[in-house]
């Protein structure tokens, strides 16, 4: 070891000056990546603990809320992600064998999988928003007991516009809140008037504009007698966890594009494929987290 270390003068380009051998550099990169993945697991771990606490305290919320998630969509997404993990593994193998073409195709397929996942997620989210299942305080029109009020500076809502109520802050206009003035988002309905978290008063659906039957069907769910108090909490946790996961998928897309550029430029070969390998590890953990999220929200 000593002799090889001191006599290695044929430092390849990719080998940084403080490493003795490519193997050492590769192993260090891999260890670093695993540690980073451990922090990712812990980052989600916080949310999983939150999930467990809430589920333990209020199982009825999860029973109720999960009915309104589209299991088919979730299942398709799970399959898409697992397939993309497969193509990623294939890409890594190609990189290790120096098969540049295979690497490029593998990365492209993985990217397609990621895109597909995000697309389906977008459809799911917009459905939820259409139906008024917003995260947090916006789940309700007026969380009355926090004396949060509609902001007078916002335009009167009409069909095709989403109005974001402003929480209880000193800021009295959109500008002060730092939100863009064109906060109005094109979707098909306005926020349904709901009920405050503490009171279960009857809903008034007067202002609501329904544009499709499906939305109408689920709207009625909001009025259901058996709706447990604090039903919004299920959607808060759902949006937080799948949202954070979605951000990670988005990050994965970035990594994949970067790898793709490198692959096209021919940076990787059978001696140097560390970035592809590490990117693959990251992609698998993102996949793995979804495999936990899917049953936790959609199935049980």
């Amino acid at each position: 070891m000593t002799t090889t270390a001191s006599t290695t003068h044929d430092h390849p380009d990719f080998l940084a000056h403080h490493w003795d051998t490519p193997k050492q550099q590769f192993e260090a990169g891999k260890l670093g990546m695993w540690l980073f993945l451990a922090t990712e697991v812990l980052l989600f771990g916080g949310l999983f603990v939150g999930y467990a606490v809430w589920r333990g305290n209020h199982p009825e919320l999860f029973k109720f809320g999960s009915q309104y998630l589209d299991t088919t969509m979730g299942a398709i997404n799970t399959v898409v992600l697992i397939l993309s993990s497969l193509t990623m593994a294939w890409a890594v193998t190609c990189a290790q064998r120096g098969n540049r073409k295979g690497l490029i195709i593998g990365l492209l397929l993985t990217l397609a999988g990621a895109g597909g996942f995000l697309g389906i997620k977008y459809v799911e989210y917009s459905h939820k928003f259409n139906e008024g299942w917003f995260p947090g305080a916006y789940f309700y029109d007026k969380p009355s007991d926090r004396s949060r009020t509609w902001d007078d500076n916002l335009p009167v809502p009409g069909a095709g516009q989403l109005v974001v109520p402003v929480p209880d802050t000193e800021a009295r206009s959109i500008e002060e809140l730092g939100l863009p003035a064109d906060i109005l988002v094109e979707i098909s309905t306005v926020v349904p008037p709901g009920q405050g978290p503490s009171g279960l008063e009857e809903l008034a659906l007067t202002d609501t504009v329904h544009t499709d039957d499906h939305a109408e069907h689920e709207m009625h769910a909001l009025q259901r007698e058996d709706r447990p108090a604090n039903a919004h909490m299920f959607f808060n946790i759902y949006f937080m966890m799948t949202g954070l996961h979605g951000l990670h998928v988005l990050g994965g897309v970035g990594v994949m594009i970067w790898l793709l550029i490198g692959a096209v430029k021919g940076r990787f070969n059978e001696k140097y494929f560390t970035p592809v390998d590490l990117g693959g590890l990251y992609w698998h953990i993102v996949d793995l987290i979804w495999i936990f999220l899917f049953p936790l929200f959609y199935l049980i």
């Binding site: 916080g46 947090g136 305080a137 916006y138 929480p167 604090n230």
Partner: peptide, 21 residues
């Protein structure tokens, strides 16, 4: 450290959107 990361993220989201956790 990741746990404080997610905690302050939740705090910020709570502050911004009032998610209520």
């Amino acid at each position: 450290t990741p746990v404080i990361g997610i905690t302050v993220a939740l705090l910020a989201v709570e502050r911004l959107f009032g998610i209520g956790i």
